[in-house]
Design a protein around this nucleic acid. Structure first.
Lengths: 214, 214
DNA sequence: GCACAAAGTTTTGTATACAGAGGTGCGTCC
DNA sequence: GGACGCACCTCTGTATACAAAACTTTGTGC
């Protein structure tokens, strides 16, 4: 693995996981020493982070971890709506929809598990399942431009997710909403898939806005 | 201006204007000498171009100008539909819609000019007007995430535009479609704005696909 | 004559050294 | 006592030198 890739991967992970909180100044020598690479590959990593929007380059002052707050939530979800609703629509029209019926079933099972006694143990599998749905939609949409836009969006979402804690009842409802999306795609009903996605996003945003900041 | 910015700007312009056609290998020393900068800032420029999708880094072989062809058109317009339809919808709901009525009028006038005797002279003003509409929508949407996604999209569109020549009658129809979009936004009718945008994109894609390659 | 391997050459990837710009702190002047 | 200015210092931005990896070419063996 190249040193610049290593620096990029580590810095990106640290930023997304809030180990480097917003506003942190990323001094080149400091970070280079911390990560065990030279300044040259580190600068390349910082440039990529800036392109991702995870850092902003201040003139003369180097790079600082970009700000993120609930003020961005509406903006983030507006982009999410544009991309994900259309993605669901396209996925439902795609030829490669074999896996979605099974995914819908697994989401329903996950919802039951989240409602059961040991909800904590069902949490991690549920997040992985949600990731699988994202991947399946990406594959079905089969559009590198949309995929790239979604990748950037998901990075910011993962970062903002820290601001809102996940209540078990919300996760259970979310699982049912995901099941509806996967089911609509499996059925090839593009407008139903779009509607189900729109509903999920609306509920998701509502939940974050009412339960965040505590 | 920093040397890396200069290298990025020039390379980007050369790629978008097809002075560096797809498949061109961007040797580091070669380009560094051509642009009069050192390899270090040039590498930073190449990294940014890769992030934009204008170049792809091939293992061991450096960077090459990314491919672009009519095969990408459907993918590009799918993303365009997702972003621009939602942008029009958001712009129509925005508070800052003062300029759109005037823009709609200017598009109607531009359509008349394009239908008149000296259509060639009306070409350049029309392109500028289309750019103004894009900017106005960006301002009304007021969403940095969507704006960034649109910026990347427009870069690729500018590049692919070379593949399709602009027939005068299509431009005239396009002007009317733009007038409809601007008018709907000015009226604050979000669904009408979305529909007008959808129609414009559909016609635009149809035209390119039937008239391209000659 | 073709295929495989090895060596050479060209290229990228990394480190370090140097220069320039900006910021901060202290001193002096008003 | 406060404000402005100068100097020092730290940090970014750039260049160059070195190392490593990959591709190409040539030679030899089958």
């Amino acid at each position: 693995m190249r040193a610049s890739d290593k620096a990029y991967t580590e810095l990106r992970r640290d930023i997304v996981e809030w180990k480097l909180p917003p506003g942190t100044v990323l001094g080149e020598v400091e970070q280079a020493e911390r990560l065990g690479v030279s300044r040259t590959p580190l600068r390349e990593a910082l440039a990529r982070l800036s392109a991702d929007g995870l850092a902003v380059q201040q003139r003369g002052r180097g790079a600082v971890v970009s700000d993120v707050s609930l003020d961005h939530l509406d903006n983030l979800f507006e982009l999410r709506r544009a991309l994900e609703v259309e993605s669901s629509r396209l996925a439902a029209r795609s030829e490669h929809r074999e896996g979605f019926a099974r995914l819908a079933q697994r989401f329903t099972e996950a919802a039951d598990a989240l409602g059961g006694g040991d909800a904590g143990a069902a949490l991690e599998p549920y997040y992985r399942l949600a990731g699988e749905l994202d991947e399946a939609i990406d594959q079905a949409v089969d559009n590198p431009y949309i995929e790239q836009a979604l990748r950037g969006l998901r990075t910011h979402l993962a970062r903002v997710r820290r601001l809102a804690q996940d209540a078990p009842d919300r996760l259970r409802a979310s699982a049912f909403e995901h099941a509806a999306i996967a089911g609509a795609i499996a059925a090839g009903d593009s407008e139903l898939a779009a509607a189900a996605t729109l509903l999920h996003l609306s509920h998701s945003l509502d939940h974050i806005k009412t339960h965040a900041g505590s």
